[in-house]
């Protein structure tokens, strides 16, 4: 698989390591009353869909940036590559408004 890095252009996927579902960016609050259950779901449960999947990849053998990649799990086709930094910032902005 070729990953089209937003800063560095097309790179081989073997330069990256894989973490998992990008829902991991959405860490629950430890102060919530349902924190125990929230963290269980956050840590252990996954949607694992057969189609499009947003996932976190780390450019370990490159610029060490974290990416959010939208990839089809059945065809491996990559449709979108974003810097995780930008995705997280947008999430914080959205939660403020």
């Amino acid at each position: 698989m070729i990953i089209n890095h937003p800063l560095l252009g097309p790179r081989d996927s073997s330069e990256f390591s894989y973490l998992g579902d990008a829902a991991l960016l959405n860490r629950p609050s430890a102060k919530s009353e349902t924190a125990t259950d929230d963290f269980y779901r956050y840590q252990y449960l996954r949607d694992n869909p057969p189609g499009e999947h947003r996932e976190l990849w780390y450019h370990e053998h490159g610029d060490r940036s974290w990416l959010v990649i939208t990839r089809n799990m059945t065809t491996h086709a990559i449709t979108k590559v974003e810097l995780a930094r930008d995705v997280k910032r947008a999430m914080i902005e959205a939660s403020k408004s």
């Binding site: 998992g20 579902d21 779901r41 252990y44 449960l45 996954r46 949607d47 694992n48 869909p49 057969p50």
Partner: peptide, 18 residues
């Protein structure tokens, strides 16, 4: 292999990745 897919039809989320 397809557990998440099948159990999603019963509204369940599993501690699995394929």
């Amino acid at each position: 292999g397809n557990s998440s897919r099948v159990m999603a039809m019963a509204g369940m989320q599993l501690p699995l990745e394929s």
